[in-house]
């Protein structure tokens, strides 16, 4: 409703599936009643078209704030956020979001299938194709049999999967997810992680995935962005060299996985203690020298 002719209705990037996200000197201060809160101090990074980037950081670090700025739901205090070269001033087309409050993001007066279908209707997807997409995505998240139920008849984990199905059915170029698997059990979580990787590879979309789970961030991401505590800066942009094909058992058993996990874990610990730059961080396991096998 409130997006003028900036990014609206123009092709986002030349990349087939995804679009480039750029964040430059993003700063966000919440002003309102009481003291202003500086949530994000200064963030600069880029997500290449078709890349999957995970964001981790301590609780209250400003991950949700960042994601909402990316989604065009929250105006930045200063700095620029752009998608495919066009500044984001409102929710851009071709972007789907899974909000952290997944349960409250479902329309309680609509059935599960209607919830998934509504954004497609608005996108003017033809009826037959809509039905196809709804069926496909609900089946993919294992909810085909509750399509006719209301969201509040489902468990928290199931509601979360509905929100994921809605985002996936939208066939976005950019998918933003805020701790989407927080409420699902470990087994389903592994399946959904693989689902995200599969969809990401198949559609070539750009994904920004916020999580507090370090293992999940490394397993999913091509890069892991480690944030400092509030006010947020990027502590380190960690490249994940685990290859394109990942497997829950093998990848998680990999020595490189273990090294990255240790490293990111240490970074997050340091971030919690208020460390705001890599130079100040005391790391017992240096990042650039992989530990010997067995260490």
């Amino acid at each position: 409703m409130s997006s003028p002719a900036n990014v609206a209705d123009r092709p986002v990037d030349d990349h087939p599936g995804g679009a480039r996200l750029e964040v430059r000197n993003l700063r966000k201060v919440y002003t309102g009643r009481g003291e202003p809160v500086e949530a994000v101090a200064d963030l600069t990074f880029e997500v290449r078209p078709g890349e999957l980037v995970c964001v981790v950081g301590p609780s209250g670090a400003g991950k949700t704030t960042l994601l909402r700025c990316l989604a065009g739901l929250l105006p930045a205090t200063s700095g620029d956020v752009s998608l495919g070269g066009a500044p984001i001033t409102g929710p851009p087309p071709g972007m789907a979001v899974v909000l952290q409050e997944y349960g409250r993001s479902l329309f309680p007066w609509m059935s599960v299938a209607q919830n998934v279908e509504l954004p497609l209707k608005e996108k003017r997807v033809p009826k037959a194709r809509r039905a196809e997409l709804v069926d496909e995505t609900l089946a993919a998240v294992g909810l085909a049999d509750v399509a006719g139920s209301y969201p509040w008849q489902l468990s928290g984990g199931m509601q979360q999967r509905v929100a994921i199905a809605r985002a996936v059915a939208y066939e976005p170029q950019v998918l933003l997810m805020d701790e989407p698997f927080a409420a699902v059990d470990a087994q389903t979580r592994f399946e959904l992680e693989d689902l995200v990787r599969t969809l990401w590879k198949r559609l070539g979309i750009t994904v920004v995935f916020v999580t507090h789970d370090i293992d999940e961030a490394i397993y999913l991401g091509e890069r892991v962005l480690v944030l400092s505590a509030r006010p947020t800066v990027v502590l380190e942009d960690v490249a994940v060299g685990l290859g394109a094909d990942r497997d829950q058992l093998e990848t998680r058993g990999d020595a490189e996985f273990a090294r990255l996990r240790t490293h990111v874990y240490e970074l997050v610990q340091q971030a919690k203690q208020g460390v705001r730059s890599l130079a100040d961080a005391h790391l017992t396991h240096p990042a650039d020298t992989p530990p010997r096998a067995g260490a």
Partner: peptide
């Protein structure tokens, strides 16, 4: 959160009124 959802999925004025 519902308002944000409607906005993020770019529901138009009519759809926002009607469905939200």
């Amino acid at each position: 959160v519902l308002r944000d959802t409607a906005r993020a999925y770019r529901l138009g004025l009519v759809a926002t009124l009607r469905h939200l």
